[in-house]
Design a protein around this nucleic acid. Structure first.
Lengths: 107, 107
DNA sequence: TTGACATATCGAGAATTCTCGATATACAAT
DNA sequence: ATTGTATATCGAGAATTCTCGATATGTCAA
């Protein structure tokens, strides 16, 4: 019985725009403006990018990118951190590695 | 630009029944009746299972299983061999390994 | 040739996904 | 308090996927 979460991951990965976002988030500095202007000192969420910047780059509507990011997070591919009015998303590298491992050994 | 084939793989993997089939085909002897009664000597397609046996085990209609298998083959997850009226399907282990590797290094 | 069987393809209705604009919520600044 | 900004949620129409039964195609056996 394959876990539902695995299927949710595959569904989340079955869309070009979402794949792009995941890929851009591999090198946030390269693809997005500098982040964290609104994150207070002492908070550690390196590599996170706010929704607005992702939306602009992806070229889809704000509501679409919001639900995409939410979907990817529910699937475990992303993790998020909210500070004030901003929500920052970044890759969940451990989960992605585990997915690769799952495919290699258990699929 | 993620290849279309990668997305097709993820789509093919986004369904419980198809995941089950892929998993059963890991150990065909364990999950299906003995195969190859109709495969002539000299033809080598070890691990292949015919559509009818997969259909019975999966418990979906014949047309559904046929299109599932076709879809998985087009995505590269399965390979098929037709002998007479029978079509045998088996896993494409190389492609599955490559998918894991792709996720690990390029996703 | 005829009949039986394995699989593929077709057509369709139901369910899900995609994607948007509009609106709501939550917080910041004035 | 009011306004502005960032994000989330809602509602809906279009597109896609799911899954079936019916039918077509190809092959084997009698």
């Amino acid at each position: 019985m394959p876990s539902m979460k695995t299927i949710d991951m595959f569904k989340a990965l079955s869309n070009e725009t979402r794949l792009q976002i995941l890929n851009w988030l591999k090198e946030p500095d390269k693809h997005f403006p500098a982040q964290g202007a609104h994150i207070p000192k002492g908070v550690n969420f390196a590599g996170g990018v706010c929704v607005g910047d992702i939306q602009e780059k992806a070229g889809v509507s704000q509501s679409t990118v919001s639900s995409y990011l939410n979907m990817m997070q529910k699937a475990g591919l992303l993790e998020s951190f909210r500070y004030g009015q901003w929500t920052y998303y970044r890759r969940n590298e451990a989960a992605i590695r585990q997915l690769a491992e799952h495919i290699r050994t258990e699929l």
